[in-house]
Structure formats: C-alpha cells, structure tokens
Design a protein around this nucleic acid. Structure first.
Lengths: 112, 112
DNA sequence: TTTATAAATTCGCTTATATGCATATAGGTA
DNA sequence: TACCTATATGCATATAAGCGAATTTATAAA
C-alpha cells in the first residue's frame, strides 16, 4: 500500500469498488472484469492501472494477458471490513459475484 | 450513512480525513477545526458541509456556532478501522490530535 | 440599533476524474 | 511474415473538486 490517500481514492469510484469486490475473490485478467461487469476494455484497463498505481492491486503479465490481484498488506484491515461488512451486503456487488461465477464457468480455457 | 460511495468520497481528501480524525475524539465547532488544522474558515466549512451531505457527520446549531459530530451508525466499522488502524499511527494525524488538545485548553469559554 | 463574530455561500479559476473513440503495442498463432 | 487477440495509451471532452477572496446570513452583545 502506497499512500493511504491514494488507496482511498481508488475506492471512491463505483467501478473500482466493483473491481475490488471481484479481485477479493481471486486473481483475474482484464477480460474477466470487462465481461463480468459488462464494461469497456478501456474502462477496465484504466481503472485497474489506477488501482495498481495506488498500490491496491498488482499485476502479472503472462502471454498476452494481464492478471490482476489484490496487493494485500497489513494495512488492508479497513478494506476487508469495507468489503465484508458493506459491499457484500449490497445487491450490486452480490450480482457481480454471481456474474463472475457464471462467466468463469462459461469461458473455456483462458480469456477468449 | 447515506450512499456508501458518498461516504468513501468524503474520506478521499486529506483535509476531510484530518477533520474526521478530530471529530472521532469529540464534537467540535467550525472554529475549533480551523484553529487546530490551521485552515481557512471557508475550507473548514465547506468540507464539513461536504461530509454532512455524505451522511458522515451531523451538525447542531447553537447560538452563532455550528457544532459537528460523527453521524455514527452500524455501517461505520470500516471507518473505525481506518481511523484506529491507519490514521492514528500516522504522524500528521497524531500531531493534529495534540494540537486539538492544546487549542481546547487554550480557548476560554466557547469559540473565540 | 449598531457592531462584532461565526458560519455559509457565491464567484472565478485551476486541476483532477471519468469515459469514449481511435490507435498503438505486444505476444500468440496460422 | 501476416494476422489475431489482449491490453495499454493518446486525444478530446464533460464533469466534478478544491480553493482563495469577498460577500452574505445569523446570532449575540454593546
């Protein structure tokens, strides 16, 4: 985690909260997020980069894919609480998680 | 707490985080905050109103003063964690708390 | 009723955000 | 090599934020 304020700023956008909620489940590539949230590639990529610059997520490049995952550290306690106590009781984020499951079972190998 | 996103947005500014940290201690009027944080009246007032609109704080008008305090509710868990686990270990916010004590002991009756 | 003080609001300006569209890059695959 | 596919980036734009200076409103006190 870089500067606390940058982390909080990356939580202050609904799309990024939705991404955070998904990444809290597992590492995902950009296309998983686009498909699950039904957002444009540009939007997904830009927000992920924003979150990466804030130190909230990290990336791993494999072949043509960019996999993103949470960059957890000891200061993430309040983020855990935000996700578990707030997001996870909200319909939007619950649906996103369902859609993620559906998408992951649908896609054959990697991203397509 | 109104919309979660509005609450998070009101956490995404350093001045507002500093105000939050002070209000976590006790109810304060605008002048206490100006003096403690050494910021302009306009700035203090505007941020407090922003936080009020987000549902993070509430106000109480008495005579010519406006007292602000946290509008706590069951969804504040992640905010407690943010303050106790993050802010309170950072020098800036610690100093602000010291300055608050000094200011409160200095001022005679109410605000002056 | 005039004056002083606390707080809120308006104006103008500057900077940051979010986003779409188009394009570039980079790694597979035919 | 030529061509996909995944991701990143440049450009343009619309909107929101943050802030100082000045003004207004509200209340209290002289």
């Amino acid at each position: 985690m870089e500067k606390l304020l940058d982390v909080i700023k990356s939580l202050s956008d609904e799309t990024r909260l939705r991404i955070l909620n998904l990444l809290y489940e597992k590492e995902l590539c950009v296309c998983d997020i686009m498909e699950t949230l039904q957002i444009s590639q540009t939007k997904a990529s830009r927000h992920l980069i924003y979150m990466k610059n804030a130190g909230l997520v990290k990336d791993r490049k494999y072949a043509q894919w960019a996999y993103y995952s949470l960059d957890k550290d000891e200061k993430m306690k309040f983020i855990d609480s935000l996700i578990l106590d707030n997001l996870r009781s909200m319909e939007l984020y619950q649906k996103d998680m369902e859609n993620l499951k559906i998408w992951l079972s649908k896609k054959t190998i990697q991203c397509n």
